[in-house]
């Protein structure tokens, strides 16, 4: 089928098998290697992407389900020059060890902060509860998301002061 959707801000158009898994399409056709496949069965969250702003699992989605959507992967959250607060906080707080879970975690965290800019620690724990990490023990990940929320609040304060 002819498929068209927005991936990390750019419109992509391609021919795809409608039953191709979204994770395979993103990685193999579109080079989005930041989307990881851990389990392939919905259990680990490594393949998480934001679809219209909502965390979904690309291992349990088919190409046809991306048609007309806006998809953001971890790499699309920010750039090296202008990282998303979550990306910066993960790097600064030691929330990354092997890094395999990191893109999915970052996507889950960014999805949370878009919806709830001032989450309690428990909200953060729940928000990343579909993402498994074999390395960090989660504490530093949750610290990082808290720090990202603080940075977002500070930025918002600044833009409001400027007005």
């Amino acid at each position: 089928m002819k498929l068209s959707f927005i991936l990390n801000g750019a419109t992509v158009r391609l021919d795809a098998e409608p039953d191709r898994r979204a994770v395979d399409l993103l990685r193999e056709e579109l080079g989005a290697l930041d989307v990881k496949e851990g389990c392939g069965t919905g259990e680990c969250g490594a393949c998480s992407v934001l679809v219209d702003g909502v965390q979904k699992l690309s291992c349990l989605m088919l190409a046809a389900q991306l048609e007309g959507r806006t998809v953001v992967t971890a790499a699309g959250l920010g750039t090296a020059e202008k990282p998303h607060p979550v990306q910066r906080a993960f790097a600064e707080h030691g929330a990354v060890q092997c890094g395999f879970c990191t893109p999915g975690m970052a996507v889950a965290a960014a999805g949370l902060l878009a919806e709830n800019p001032a989450p309690a620690r428990e909200d953060i724990r729940r928000a990343v509860s579909g993402n498994l990490c074999r390395c960090t023990g989660y504490v530093k990940i949750i610290d990082a998301v808290e720090a990202a929320a603080r940075e977002l609040a500070a930025r918002k304060g600044k833009t409001e002061d400027a007005r």
Partner: peptide
Amino acid sequence: LGSPPIRNM
């Protein structure tokens, strides 16, 4: 039920 992404889907 499940996890946040499972509940989203």
